[in-house]
Design a protein around this nucleic acid. Sequence first.
DNA 1: ATTTGTGCAAATCGTTTGCATCTGA
DNA 2: TCAGATGCAAACGATTTGCACAAAT
Lengths: 144, 144
Amino acid sequence: MTAAQFNASALDCRVRAAGLRPTRQRIALAELLFKAGDRHVSAEELHEEALSAGVRVSLATVYNTLHQFTEAGMLRILPVEGSKTYFDTNTSDHHHFFLEGENRLMDIPEGPVSVTNLPAPPEDMEISHVDILVRLRPKSNRVR
Amino acid sequence: MTAAQFNASALDCRVRAAGLRPTRQRIALAELLFKAGDRHVSAEELHEEALSAGVRVSLATVYNTLHQFTEAGMLRILPVEGSKTYFDTNTSDHHHFFLEGENRLMDIPEGPVSVTNLPAPPEDMEISHVDILVRLRPKSNRVR
DNA sequence: ATTTGTGCAAATCGTTTGCATCTGA
DNA sequence: TCAGATGCAAACGATTTGCACAAAT
């Protein structure tokens, strides 16, 4: 079995495990999303990438798929300002730098970042996930 | 001098200090925004509130004003998913709970929340602000 | 008098929806 | 066979823009 075949069937399983039919479009999108390590993508970007890769898929299906994968826990929506929704292929605990000028996100390199002194959440609520966004701006040389 | 007069002129100064002309609309919006302590508002909400308060102002002006105040550091844009932009009248260091079901934000009560082990930002960049978003979901009673 | 701000309506952008058609189990 | 998925185009909601008019310095 070749590596390509292995990966293809792994993606097939992943899609099935999410309770979704492994259609041509979903497998192809999963491939684009999960073959290349951690990624931050918008629907529009993924759509263009699919078309470039010769995958025929409509923008509406890209939106559907991204949300279905998100519900299945395969993606996470990034908390950023701005009109577009960005999806993160890394759903494990990690955080982000946000470059203010460019409106771009970078993963914070692996490390034991932790939050201390978090107050208890209100009754009947539990913490689902903690997002830390470190906003960066160009270092100004002149003294203010 | 009455309290109302004092506050009105204080707002006037604040708007001037931001390099903006103290117009009727801007003063009125500043009043709505800053008289009532910490608030999270969207443009639409502030517009409705202004109309209810008898302030004649267009939605476009509300958008303009919110962005001008933000550039002047009087407001901060909240990092939340979702289509609407929310502005926070509290620009000091504090963080938020995000209620997943309702897509609603709450301030995290005052306290020494802190992040440890933050890696150094890339060269030529400095930290502008750290946003911590604690996502909450209803506590499930049944064991999964 | 000149600059800056405002209001309106139209335009734009990202996203969702309705529905006819197609596809995988 | 037939529930579920797709594609298209139209609908939508939030935001921005262009431009004539009004207000502040």
